[in-house]
Design a protein around this nucleic acid. Structure first.
Lengths: 149, 149
DNA sequence: ATATTATTGTTGACAGCGCAACAATCTGAT
DNA sequence: ATCAGATTGTTGCGCTGTCAACAATAATAT
């Protein structure tokens, strides 16, 4: 709501921060109320292949949590009947995580909710504007070869 | 790095998510290593008036934490000599939080780091592009008057 | 004045995360 | 074959957050 003041870069980033926070809060409410999932749990679920077992090692690479957090999260999923975990026959160190039928169902329902929230939030933008937004955001470089020199 | 596929709204949001995560990680490292601050602590510090005491009640409104978290965070700040807390003479329920000189200094230094990271990340965009980005992001409506009708 | 209600900040209990240490297992050099 | 080193997932611990209950104080109604 606050009109842009100061450097436009900072104004843009502030607005992105605020928008991110608002949308994430919306996701959190929807996932919790509709599916009993936290944001981390949703992210984990969505990154699991619906048909193929996956190793912790491979799954954790798509996520923002540590191995230990994933280990505990998957135990919770196991207790809820969302996944099964079995030793990998080829590599006895590994665990193969597979979605149960309930897990697949939950994953699909959550993905649908996710898309609905996004389309709802983006309903004020045309397709062209969404493309432009994509292009502009892709120019932001966190590891920016910065301000030096 | 992944080329946009599927609906552009979802592609744009995914990219925003990823960019947000990358930049936040960068902030986290900078604040921790340079100033010994977590993201929450930085946010709190930056939202404190440099010259005027502020009540918990008022400060918490600018933040994304609960009263209890703020209460504990401010105690940590107090122990580090960053703030002082004194009872409000007008309202005995209230606490007036004020930055110490060290706190003011830390706040300024952290704000400077913050701006540097932003400018660095946005160095690939022109000012006009940053303005356009602002305009497009402002069209995203979390509480979107959605997809209905 | 007095009783009821709202507010403000703190505390206890608990949940989830990261880090470091660990045991089990695999890999690769010799 | 054997042994040093890397990989993989789990666990203990501490930190930080939320939620619910609480005590102290202020505001409001009667």
């Amino acid at each position: 709501m606050i009109k842009a003041s100061g450097p436009p870069q900072i104004a843009a980033w502030r607005l992105m921060l605020e928008t991110h926070a608002d949308l994430m809060e919306r996701f959190e409410v929807v996932f919790r109320d509709s599916h009993g999932l936290s944001l981390t749990e949703f992210d984990t679920l969505i990154n699991m292949p619906p048909d193929t077992p996956i190793r912790h090692r491979d799954l954790v690479q798509s996520l923002v949590v540590t191995r230990s957090a994933l280990s505990r999260l998957l135990r919770r999923f196991e207790e809820r009947g969302i996944v099964t975990q079995t030793a990998d026959v080829d590599d006895q160190r590994g665990i193969r995580v597979a979605l149960t039928p309930e897990g697949v169902e939950l994953r699909e329902a959550a993905a649908k909710s996710n898309a609905e929230v996004i389309f709802s939030a983006f309903s004020g933008l045309t397709v062209e504007e969404a493309d432009t937004l994509y292009e502009l955001v892709s120019k932001i470089r966190p590891e920016g070869a910065g301000t030096e020199s």
